[in-house]
């Protein structure tokens, strides 16, 4: 039976959903799931990963002002020498996750398989499915060399599936100083706060693109989002243009969202955008170009000028006094 290690990233004292999703995936494929986490003992309660059937968590400790990549990769590298090797290591496709995967890959001389959206066992080998070409093509791949294979998994690819398992054992590990590769120092951390639900978890996402025409018009997106208790999102074009902060970006380089409803206004639907939202339960798109690729994924497509549709929609919702939800 297989053993899989997962990277358990936490932020602000909370284990990230993607780490729990990795546990959910690993549990289907392995008899033993263990995790590697970091952060001080008081900061994060890693034992709770037991509810996702993680039996043991190796805790690297507080990283201070180090970046995550070098320290955590060094620790995992050392553990691979002193423990029975797992069959695979699953890492979430977050910024820090990618750094850890990349450093670990070079350190142990094993390639990475990235943009993974599914994992299955075929003939005793782990086979990964990848969203390539912006999610239009699914490729399946596997490692052929000696492992453990490193899989970098896109958030929201797996169910977390709480099993109510017993608390995981937490083991502190001490890793050697990685040396010059750990030279960078985090001087300060800045959180751009925003009212309302977060883009990652909102039931409704209202996103705007270049078709808005100006930064000022993004206020309409925010207003509509507010009216439907949703989060405002954006295409990269308007993030690049400086209209909205990067944390609003949906897509390949931005966030992956899976809301009940995704509303896109003036977003053409480039493959790199679609990969971040095409798994929404329902999609509504408004674009004046009938051939915009966004219409290929929309449940309801409105060909029209958003400068007409958006204000009327806001007006209608305001009139309904719909600033209260159904249930």
């Amino acid at each position: 039976m297989k053993t899989i290690w997962i990277l358990a990233e936490a932020r602000n004292g909370r284990i990230l959903p993607v780490a729990e999703e990795l546990a959910g995936a690993a549990r289907q494929l392995a008899s033993t799931v263990e995790a590697v986490g970091w952060g001080g003992a008081e900061a994060v309660d890693f034992a709770t990963l037991g509810t996702y059937d993680v039996s043991r968590v190796f805790r690297v400790g507080d990283l201070g002002d180090s970046l995550v990549g070098p320290r955590v990769a060094a620790a995992v590298g050392e553990m691979l020498e002193s423990h029975p090797k797992p069959d695979a290591i699953l890492v979430g496709a977050t910024y820090d996750g990618r750094d850890v995967a990349a450093r670990l890959s070079a350190k142990i001389d094993v390639p990475v398989l990235t943009n993974v959206i599914d994992l299955n066992e075929i003939d005793d080998a782990l086979v990964s499915t990848h969203a390539v070409f912006g999610g239009t093509v699914n490729a399946t791949a596997r490692f052929t060399g000696s492992g453990p294979g490193i899989f970098v998994v896109r958030p929201k690819s797996f169910e977390r599936g709480d099993t109510g398992g017993a608390a995981a054992e937490v083991v502190d590990i001490v890793a050697a100083d990685p040396g010059p590769s750990d030279g960078a120092r985090v001087v300060s951390r800045h959180v751009l706060t925003q009212d309302g639900p977060s883009l990652d978890s909102a039931e409704v996402v209202v996103a705007g693109g270049r078709g808005l025409g100006s930064k000022e018009n993004y206020r309409l997106i925010e207003e509509l989002a507010h009216l439907v208790h949703g989060a405002p999102g954006a295409s990269r074009a308007i993030v690049d243009a400086g209209w909205v902060p990067y944390s609003h970006q949906v897509g390949q380089t931005g966030k992956t969202v899976k809301p009940e409803v995704y509303l896109a206004f003036g977003i053409s639907g480039a493959t790199q955008h679609l990969v971040g939202m095409k798994d929404a339960k329902h999609i509504i798109a408004v674009d004046r170009d009938p051939s915009a690729p966004i219409f290929r994924v929309a449940d309801l497509g409105v060909v029209g000028d958003l400068a007409q549709v958006l204000p009327k929609l806001i007006e209608a919702l305001r009139a309904r006094g719909s600033h209260e939800s159904t249930n």
Partner: peptide, 8 residues
């Protein structure tokens, strides 16, 4: 994911 950090 939630903003930025200053790194030297």
């Amino acid at each position: 994911e939630e903003g930025f950090e200053e790194v030297t």
